[in-house]
């Protein structure tokens, strides 16, 4: 018994120092050498600092909406809705979101509403929307802000990111910061 336990305890202690002590400190040291200094990607607007990877809630009509979120974009936590695909209450919520979108966006047809605008993301903090989701909102924003649609479409194009592989995305926060600057 003793012959098994003592080596096990001593090995655990010394490994703790290596794996939970030295290893994270080494990585932390590397982090200090990177441009972001390990603080995550930050952007500045109006003298304020935001996390460009953390989505924000945009529900006002003058902004491009972000996606629905199970945690209201409060990154003190993170979660999806965990609703199953056949759940009747959940499908009713989707229908409500579609109806509400149509009320706020006159002149838009149902078939043009992309699915990411009415479904909640996995983290509740998704910083992106699809290109279609931005384009479908151009008409509304143009009317509210009195900016020609063509200018807004140009803005959407500018903020469309196409990684080497993977889907096209638009960072809603960056798009809306740029939108505020247009006025």
């Amino acid at each position: 018994m003793k012959k098994q336990f003592f080596p096990a305890i001593k090995l655990t202690l010394v490994l703790l120092i290596v794996l939970s002590g030295i290893y994270p400190l080494v990585i932390w040291g590397f982090a200090k050498l990177t441009p972001q200094k390990g603080k995550g990607e930050l952007i500045e607007a109006n003298g304020k600092k935001y996390y460009s990877n953390i989505g924000q809630s945009f529900t006002e009509d003058k902004y491009f909406y972000s996606r629905p979120s199970a945690v209201n974009y409060n990154a003190a936590g993170s979660a999806g809705s965990n609703k199953g695909p056949s759940n009747a209450d959940y499908l009713a919520i989707i229908q409500e979101r579609i109806d509400s979108f149509l009320t706020h966006n006159p002149g838009i047809e149902k078939k043009d509403i992309p699915v990411d605008l009415v479904t909640a993301s996995g983290s509740g903090l998704d910083p992106h929307i699809s290109v279609a989701a931005a384009e479908v909102q151009v008409k509304r924003i143009s009317k509210i802000r009195n900016i020609p649609e063509a200018n807004l479409r140009e803005l959407v194009r500018t903020y469309t990111e196409q990684p080497a592989v993977g889907p096209q995305t638009i960072n809603v926060l960056q798009l809306n910061i740029a939108l505020d600057k247009l006025n």
């Binding site: 609703k83 149902k110 509403i113 992309p114 699915v115 909640a120 998704d126 992106h128 995305t169």
Partner: peptide
């Protein structure tokens, strides 16, 4: 429901993936 479902099953998914 008649919306644009081309992105697929997006409930619980992130746009960047």
């Amino acid at each position: 429901m008649g919306i644009d479902n081309r992105l697929g099953a997006m409930e619980g998914k992130e746009v960047r993936f």
